[in-house]
Write a protein that binds this DNA or RNA. Structure first.
Lengths: 198, 198
DNA sequence: AAAATTATATACTGTGCGGTATGTTAAATA
DNA sequence: TATTTAACATACCGCACAGTATATAATTTT
């Protein structure tokens, strides 16, 4: 059974994660976190060494939610092409998925932490690469199953796909208009069925 | 002739602009700015009402540099297609262009200010829309000159182009790898000459 | 060049920050 | 249930923050 302390640690992370993601590392104050959790500084510093450790745990929590969701799409029933379509549909509603965590953690932390926190910046970069790798693997399976033909390497094509998706996420974030997601995904669906489908 | 005070105001803005762009609104402290300018708080608060006014002036300075540079590409000699090619080449080296200002102001401020400063967030959104409009106008000229045919409206296509460019900027920012810019621009060049060129 | 004006420097305010030492209360163990 | 152990609360620290009142220096104007 889980001890009370362990549950508190988890509770802190999941409460704190959207706040860090929204306000950024420097933009988030310890009092923001005590207020949101209903706990005191003693509790927070009893569970985490300092603010940075909390921010890293928060980002890892958000990015695990994201990576797990991506895995669900990619490990779904069907061919590689169907998995890709499922993944694209996930990103079509990415704004809804990331709403509870306060937006895309890769974009938010990747941009926010770039000049403010090396550890967080490196973590965001790593998650981006991990996602590219997952897409590349799916493409490779599609090639091996003779469903797909690519003009470049799977990783190269995955990078291009993810770049376009990230562009839609960035524009939707900046403008507050989810149409960027819808239109970009529609384009990518067209791209896949007309350019790489065998 | 420009008065000393006017020159000081300009000096402050251009010195302060890259700092705000890199560190963000909350991440930038007034002492960061006095240190960088070599001036004191008295001078800064004599020229600007408060930190927010400084941040807005800084963003407007950076975005004017960007918009002016885009205008140079779009108003260059040649056909609409050639102007588009010139603009794409500008974005191919966008990392070099934005290096002195500390990265893409639209992306940085758009993401950083989203939950921290409404005025800045609105300003970033507006610049994004302005850029889309400039691209759309060039596309429209290309249509009128019978150089281009589009499957959607010029603004819609411009949004899609800029989304992909912004994706490359975001990925290059997050990962620190400029190849995202190179590859995306190469793809867009291919897209233009194969899909919309008449 | 003298006087008026304005720009900048200095010194200071109150506040909120991240972080900590210690007290108190609750949970786990025996 | 008594005892041990650990979690959380309280109260506080030094510091850096945005901002200001006033003094001084530099620039305009006369």
């Amino acid at each position: 059974m889980t001890t009370k302390a362990e549950r508190t640690t988890i509770y802190i992370v999941e409460t704190v994660a959207p706040i860090f993601n929204k306000l950024g590392y420097v933009g988030t104050s310890m009092s923001d976190l005590t207020e949101a959790t209903g706990l005191t500084k003693g509790a927070l510093y009893g569970n985490f060494e300092n603010k940075e450790a909390l921010a890293i745990a928060a980002f890892e929590y958000n990015s695990k939610l994201l990576l797990d969701a991506i895995d669900v799409q990619i490990n779904s029933e069907g061919t590689a092409l169907e998995k890709l379509a499922t993944l694209l549909d996930f990103y079509r509603h990415y704004d809804e998925f990331t709403l509870p965590m306060g937006g895309c953690p890769v974009l938010n932390v990747g941009v926010d932490a770039k000049h403010n926190n090396k550890l967080l910046a490196a973590a965001a970069k790593e998650v981006a690469k991990t996602i590219e790798g997952k897409i590349a693997l799916t493409l490779e399976n599609g090639i091996n199953a003779a469903e797909i033909k690519l003009p470049v390497t799977p990783l190269q094509f995955a990078k291009q796909l993810y770049t376009m998706i990230q562009g839609a996420i960035a524009m939707a974030t900046i403008t507050g208009d989810r149409k960027y997601l819808l239109n970009t995904i529609t384009y990518l669906e067209y791209l896949i069925s007309n350019e790489i489908k065998r």
